[in-house]
């Protein structure tokens, strides 16, 4: 054990550092909106969103592929907007899912859980169909969707810097979510606790909800490509639940969830690197399971 740790430390390179940093950033970015989801009792929305973004991603990829092959844009530019197209497709898909679910619930008069269930499972099925259709035209590997592709993604660096593009995107997600929490802290707190009262004093709880769902969808999408859907679902809930078990105050809860998320990412990556080449990155999840068993 000690020898492998020593070996790990001596062989540690900048590549490994960037893997850890990117994974940690993705985890933190997911934990932040997860706090609001837990308060609003919508924790399963994360699971629903990660299923629902699939058709958007595939459709975006197909569109980009068509554009690239048709030659409208020079190849380098096409490569540049690839992320944007995927991101946009996924975000649109996620938002559409939430809107449809709400519309079905209100207009179709069924309960929220069933409405969401109907919509996101359908979206996921459509996504799977698209993947199968697209498998000839484009090289989409379904398992990529589940696990992400951290090891390769980190190699895609921003030209001129050693920073991986994924780290930048996830870092941006962290910044945006953090600023939202800081700026709208008391509104979010009240809207989660007592939306009816919030409306009466002028805080539009429904708008805040939409906003937070949008932020969650975008974060999920940003983290998706990096660490895969399973990790995203886990990161949306497990650090937050751990924090909730440890404290009763909201600011502390948010802080603790961020720390737990980052810690499990770091420890998980370290475990991965110890056994390099034999495990996959979902080992981060079992690591984060351990703090959860307190209380």
């Amino acid at each position: 054990m000690m020898s492998s740790v020593i070996q790990l430390v001596s062989e540690w390179g900048s590549y490994d550092t960037w893997i850890v940093i990117t994974a940690a950033l993705a985890a933190i970015a997911c934990a932040l909106p997860g706090n609001y989801l837990l308060l609003r009792r919508q924790s399963l929305l994360g699971d629903a969103l990660s299923h629902a973004v699939l058709p958007g991603i595939v459709a975006g990829y197909l569109t980009w592929n068509a554009v690239e092959h048709s030659g409208w844009l020079p190849v380098s530019q096409a490569a540049g907007i690839r992320h944007l197209v995927l991101f946009g497709g996924a975000a649109l898909s996620g938002l559409l899912c939430v809107l449809l679910a709400e519309w079905t619930q209100r207009w179709g008069r069924i309960d929220a859980g069933s409405a969401l269930g109907v919509v996101f499972t359908t979206f996921f099925a459509v996504g799977l169909l698209l993947i199968r259709q697209a498998a000839d035209q484009a090289h989409i590997d379904p398992s990529c969707v589940l696990y992400g592709n951290l090891e390769l993604i980190v190699l895609d660096r921003i030209p001129g810097t050693p920073i991986p593009r994924a780290a930048l995107i996830n870092g941006l997600a962290v910044l945006i979510n953090l600023s939202l929490w800081i700026v709208f802290y008391k509104e979010l707190q009240l809207a989660a606790f007592d939306p009816g009262y919030a409306e009466t004093i002028g805080i539009r709880a429904s708008r805040l909800n939409y906003g937070s769902t949008m932020a969650t969808a975008m974060t999920v999408v940003a983290a998706f490509e990096t660490v895969g859907s399973i990790l995203v679902i886990a990161m949306l809930i497990v650090p937050v639940a751990t924090a909730r078990l440890l404290t009763d105050r909201l600011p502390t809860m948010i802080t603790v969830s961020v720390i737990v998320a980052a810690a499990s990412a770091v420890l998980g990556m370290a475990a991965l690197c110890c056994y390099r080449g034999r495990c996959s990155r979902p080992s981060v999840i079992p690591v984060s399971k351990m703090p959860g068993w307190r209380g």
Partner: peptide, 17 residues
């Protein structure tokens, strides 16, 4: 719902591993 989400993600994560 938090309990549901936790069990879902942890078990499924283990399964994928």
């Amino acid at each position: 719902d938090a309990a549901l989400a936790i069990v879902l993600s942890l078990f499924f994560g283990l399964g994928v591993v």
